[in-house]
């Protein structure tokens, strides 16, 4: 196995780990606003790790350029989309969950 494949495997592994952590967080966190943290943050690092890992095994510069374009698009749109969702929820009057709510129940 060439060293580039090893590097790719490590990057893909880490990316999948963070991606899975985001999914589990989306399930486990108590309210909408906390779920934003899990979903919005892990996505940006997971995609960078996986697409960056694929860079090492890309056969020519055209493929590398496409990977870079996808990474840049996702890096800029992911926080923007997260913020758009949050703002819509806020305007709709969704109240954040706090520790006190849990104690009342």
């Amino acid at each position: 196995m060439e060293w580039t494949h090893t590097v790719t495997a490590v990057f893909l592994g880490l990316g999948c780990l963070f991606s899975l952590a985001g999914s589990v967080g989306l399930l486990r966190f108590p309210d909408f606003y906390s779920r934003l943290h899990a979903a919005g943050k892990t996505d940006s690092l997971a995609q960078m790790l996986i697409l960056g890992g694929l860079l090492f095994v890309s056969p020519d510069w055209g493929v590398s350029a496409r990977l870079a374009i996808i990474a840049v698009i996702l890096f800029f749109t992911a926080p923007t989309a997260t913020h758009a969702i949050t703002k819509a929820a806020r305007l709709d009057g969704l109240e954040p969950w706090t520790k006190e709510d849990a104690n009342h129940e």
Partner: peptide, 19 residues
Amino acid sequence: SNIDVLKRVLSPSMPVSPR
């Protein structure tokens, strides 16, 4: 921040107090 999220997700007690 990703390592931070990872730690919170994996800890069973969910150490969050949002504000």
